[in-house]
Design a protein around this nucleic acid. Structure first.
Lengths: 131, 131
DNA sequence: CTGGATCCACTCTGATACTG
DNA sequence: CAGTATCAGAGTGGATCCAG
């Protein structure tokens, strides 16, 4: 099974697949929240602590989107004070593997990419800071 | 080799890996351009035709970023009219596989996700259109 | 504790016009 | 052909306040 030109499958729809993908997981927090929920069942506040820098608003929005997409479950317990737990659905779990694969690519290639950027900036001093 | 909790590797850095990943390929056009260049060596205009909807400005920006990251090569021939060809570097080619894997996840799960959204919107009629 | 509502700053993108 | 420059609109994210 060759991987050569596999992307034709993806480009065949004029980019709709990739566009939808980015609409779903291309924002700032979604992948972070999903990977944080990997194998864990967490409450709102705990989630906020584990995703450094996320605001209440953004966490709420991200969780709502993920719930709407059927990737996580939201379980509210009728207690006081309220307790809400979030967990990945089976489908949400299937996202982990390809997402981590991409993230690992990013980790593996980060040094080389950073070096490339430095070399590029050195060769193009004008547009370095501008763009 | 279990894939369970593999994401701990990614979350260990406080999300820096994923953040960098999104900064690189999380924008609207990068993945589209990269997959379009899969196995091909294309000129600027040809690229613009194969990525429907992209503007000159966005194509230029995307190509510059990819070149800076060392994922594509830009070859300008000193002719008139000018001719410039873009192609993936070896490192750029390594991005194809994980990117396609994620895109395939999106394709495979799109029907179920769309259904989930419809069900969610039916159950939450108030916040459906608002957010 | 959870999270809705509002306001604001910033970025990203597209359209248009111009250049070598 | 292959860009660059400028402007305007939309979208995104953050801070804050308020409510169940």
């Amino acid at each position: 099974m060759s991987t050569y030109r596999r992307s034709c499958l993806i480009r065949g729809d004029g980019g709709r697949a990739i566009r939808g993908l980015l609409d779903r997981v291309g924002d700032k927090w979604t992948l972070l929240v999903v990977t944080t929920l990997d194998g864990e069942r967490l409450r709102f506040t705990e989630l906020q602590h584990r995703v450094p820098g996320i605001s209440q608003r953004m966490l709420t929005r991200t969780l709502r989107h993920l719930e709407r997409d059927g990737l996580i479950t939201r379980t509210a317990y009728p207690e006081v004070p309220p307790r809400v737990e979030y967990a990945l659905t089976p489908r949400g779990r299937t996202l982990i593997a390809p997402a981590v694969a991409l993230a690992e690519w990013a980790v593996d290639n980060d040094p080389a990419i950073t070096a490339s950027q430095a070399a590029y900036d050195a060769a193009h001093p004008s547009a370095a800071a501008t763009d």
